[in-house]
Amino acid sequence: MRALVTAVYLFLYAPIALVVLFSFNAGRSAVQFTGFSADWYGKALSNVLLMDALKNSLLIAATSAILAVVFGTMAAMGLERLGARMRALFDGLLAAAIVVPGVVIGIATLVALVQLFDVLNPLLAGLWPGQEAPKLQLGYGSIIAAHGLFTMALVTMIVKARIASLGRDIVEASSDLYASPLTTFREIVLPQILPAVLAGFLLAFTFSFDDFIIAFFVAGSKTTLPIYIFASIRRGVTPEINAVATMVLGASLLMILIARFLMREKTTR
């Protein structure tokens, strides 16, 4: 049994370890290690297109994660104030945002936004006082919107679970002592839900940063890191991609382990 479980852990991590190992290979071979070198990292970091894609991905992930955390936390707090029917509707929509396949979210957002822009752009051109009216198009906004849909639902679920585990009595005690609702939130509720909120942020950021399929449909002319990597993989496997993969996997593994640590606190406290 132990041996079997060890084998599964090896299965999970050996391919990643090999990718990391060969990112330091001096040669181009994928099986023969011909000497240690960090050249591929230098090459990756000085690749302008790659860095541009990385910058886009960081911007999109940070924005969508912040929006998801703020709106998701607000929603989690608002949900318990709703009547049963509205609450069921809201819960249903949030669940749908999580289970509908990413490929469908991407397509549906693409179809809806293209139609919407077709209607809005002529209107905007007509109403615009200046010469050149801004043109709505796919790009940062549409990726942020589509990523935010999934991550906001995710944050709502995580924070909701955390709020449910808090006693109502502590909040009531606070208001009995004449604390305003805002003070109660700042002094009582927020410190308690903070680990869940932070974990939600990290998961939302990682999801958006790693997502390929949704961005693939709604990115328009923008390139995110996964889209760039996908395109270069199709041209062939190189140690440069290994170097990028090592950095991406390392960063997201670290964030996930932090997120899990933050979420564990609820059981130890």
């Binding site: 852990y9 999970l12 991590y13 391919p15 990643i16 090999l18 990718v19 060969f22 071979s29 994928a30 099986v31 998961l203 990682t206 999801f207 940063f209 790693d210 390929f212 996964p226 990597i229 996908f230 993989i233 496997v237 991609i241 290994n242 993969a245 991406v248 996997l249 997201s252 593994l253 996930i256 382990l257 997120a259 899990r260």
Partner: peptide, 25 residues
């Protein structure tokens, strides 16, 4: 944590790892 963590890392990168292992080189 070690079992769950990979799920939240890039599927593209993890699939790439196998592409690399199973591919010609």
């Amino acid at each position: 944590s070690l079992v769950v963590a990979p799920f939240w890392t890039s599927l593209l990168m993890r699939t790439y790892a196998w592409m690399y292992l199973l591919g010609g080189r």
